[in-house]
């Protein structure tokens, strides 16, 4: 059985939010308008969050110590972290759901069945990555805007939780096609919208159990890390550290990563 997972290369990520829009259009995620957005109720299955690193201990190689107003090491620095659902191997949200509206699928997707959800928001409270969103308002696509709705994905109503499903509707189609042709799913056959859309090719997706898949190799790379690993959630989404530039003369120095990014 597969274990679908994703690796996001933070060095490649430009913080452009293409994944966010790709996800929103693919999964019919509604916009909520200014009022609710200002209350923090905007829904992003996949959000690029900004991490502000207040003080930076070690300087990067080849760069001077902080001199006022010079480079980004003097003051705080910003780093961008794209956050889909982590699809934990031991998801806390699944444990707390009283109605089994959210389950861990056999191939590793943390599923949310909105028609089953009673809106108690326990899962939202239990998710250490805040990757679950509550529908605070009825979806309202005025006029012709609703024509752009993706027919493959249902629209959630007021009062239920929704979250990233790794574009499970694409898996359903790909799986059916593969089974019809009596073969396994190919690596590029099923990728979520965010992976397909990423212009900087920062995201890699595939079966973590299949050693031939690029994602399985990358997830074991020395650059790989997972968010909040200490909680024992075992996320199936891993990140690759940023690396640093080495000048020509120092290239022989082995690549090692000096910085940690924690959410």
């Amino acid at each position: 059985m597969q274990k679908w997972g994703m690796v996001i290369d933070l060095d490649r990520c430009a913080g452009c939010q293409t994944c966010t829009v790709a996800c929103r259009t693919e999964n019919n995620v509604p916009f909520c308008g200014d009022g609710n957005a200002w209350k923090g109720r905007a829904i992003f299955w996949n959000k690029v969050i900004t991490v502000r690193i207040e003080s930076h201990g070690s300087q990067r190689e080849g760069e001077p110590s902080a001199s006022p107003g010079t480079n980004n090491h003097a003051g705080p620095r910003l780093r961008f972290l794209p956050m889909p659902c982590m699809h934990c191997e031991r998801p806390p949200c699944v444990l707390v759901c009283p109605v089994r509206a959210t389950t861990k699928s056999v191939d590793g997707i943390v599923m949310q069945v909105p028609s089953r959800c009673i809106g108690c928001r326990l899962c939202q409270a239990s998710c250490p990555y805040s990757r679950r969103y509550f529908n605070w308002q009825e979806v309202d696509y005025p006029g012709t805007l609703k024509e752009a709705v993706n027919p493959d994905v249902s629209i959630r109503t007021l009062g239920v939780i929704e979250k990233c499903t790794l574009c499970v509707h694409r898996l359903q189609k790909a799986r059916e096609q593969a089974r019809d042709e009596n073969r396994e799913i190919r690596e590029d056959e099923y990728v979520p919208a965010c992976v397909e859309a990423c212009p900087a090719k920062a995201r890699t997706f595939g079966d973590l159990n299949n050693p031939d898949h690029a994602v399985a190799k990358l997830a074991r790379s020395p650059r790989a890390f997972r968010l909040l690993e200490e909680l024992g959630t075992f996320p199936q989404v891993s990140y690759l550290h940023e690396s640093t530039w080495k000048s020509e003369s120092r290239k022989s120095v082995g690549a090692e990563d000096e910085e940690e990014i924690d959410g």
Partner: peptide, 9 residues
């Protein structure tokens, strides 16, 4: 954006 990813990794 594609170039950015390319220049990085």
């Amino acid at each position: 954006l594609r170039v950015f990813g390319h220049l990085r990794q």
